[in-house]
């Protein structure tokens, strides 16, 4: 027994000595990506698509597995990540503005400083849509209608990117809009197609399969999207409106610098891989990479927007 203890202690000491070289060899065990949603959702598919690329670019026979922890619109999963050991072996999906909005409208066990911001990958801009049968088929007509009387707007939820974008639209265009939050963008889109509401706010990825059924009045980007280059930006039509839903990956705060650098570089190389770009385009995911500090800046912008909306019209 005594011998056993000494060997254990020796192993412990050795492992302490080996910390520095071990980090250079990151990863030396399985990396878990915590997905805050059930398998088969958009966020889950992103994580599963990206995992084999990360394995390839991390090298070292890296193994990346997905762990689904659904519930509370992603909050359960992201809380798990915020509270995990900052060793790079637990990273998680991170959606904006949702994750920051939850720090305002709920009691959350995390805030903007709880994370190491690795990479934002998907940047899914908002669009305004009306049914094909509607007479309102341009932004100008929509704005006229909204100034005459309240326009009903279907969208996926209050406190999400659709809602924040609508507040921007109301700010920039004037007029009156009644948000109607369906739980999810598919029912919101269907209610619009059935003519039960006047307009809808969704994301570009959610309309590309419905181009024959919907008028897309504009897209909230600086430049036109490669997914639908016939859709004009709002700026082109004289409305300064920019917003999108973001999907990225974070790790717990306090990640060792070498580990952070290794992970970010793997994300960067994945993004630069033409095969990856092709898969994302094919599945209708608009991508735009922002890593490290840039991602953190995006996060803070989204938090600021959420705080502004929360102050004017708290959604709960």
């Amino acid at each position: 027994m005594h011998a056993k203890m000494t060997s254990k202690m020796a192993a412990f000491l050795l492992s302490g000595l080996m910390v520095t070289p071990a980090l250079a060899d990151f990863p030396e065990k399985r990396i878990e990506i915590v997905v805050g949603y059930a398998a088969g959702g958009g966020t889950d598919v992103l994580a599963r698509t990206i995992a084999p690329y990360l394995e390839e670019y991390l090298g070292n026979n890296a193994s990346v597995v997905i762990k689904n922890m659904p519930g509370a619109s992603g909050q359960i999963g992201v809380t798990e990540v915020a509270q995990a050991a900052p060793d790079g072996y637990t990273i998680g999906t991170y959606n904006l503005p949702g994750m920051m909005a939850r720090t305002l409208d709920r009691e959350a066990a995390f805030d903007a400083d709880s994370f190491t911001y690795l990479a934002n990958v998907v940047d899914d801009p908002n669009v305004i849509v009306t049914p094909k049968s509607s007479a309102i088929d341009t932004m100008d007509k929509l704005v006229d209608a909204a100034r005459e009387g309240a326009v009903t707007v279907s969208m996926s939820s209050l406190g999400g990117d659709d809602h924040f974008f609508l507040m921007n639209v109301a700010d920039v265009t004037g007029g009156e809009y009644t948000p109607v939050p369906f739980s999810g963008s598919a029912p919101a889109r269907s209610a619009l197609m059935g003519g039960h509401v006047t307009m809808g706010i969704v994301n570009i990825s959610e309309v590309i399969n419905f181009r024959d059924e919907l008028n897309v009045l504009g897209i909230a980007t600086q430049e036109r999207s490669p997914l639908a280059d016939d859709v004009p930006t709002f700026a082109e039509q004289g409305y300064e409106l920019y917003n999108s839903a973001l999907r990225g990956f974070v790790a717990p705060a306090g990640l060792p610098d070498e580990v952070e650098a290794a992970l970010i570089s793997a994300f960067q190389q994945t993004y630069d891989d033409p095969e990856f770009q092709d898969v994302m385009l094919r599945t209708g995911n608009p991508i735009e990479l922002a890593v490290g500090e840039d991602f953190r800046r995006l996060n803070d912008e989204q938090l600021e927007l959420a705080e502004r909306v929360w102050e004017i019209s708290p959604w709960k």
Partner: peptide
Amino acid sequence: LIHGLQPG
């Protein structure tokens, strides 16, 4: 969705 098949 996991096979890249978007409804619509």
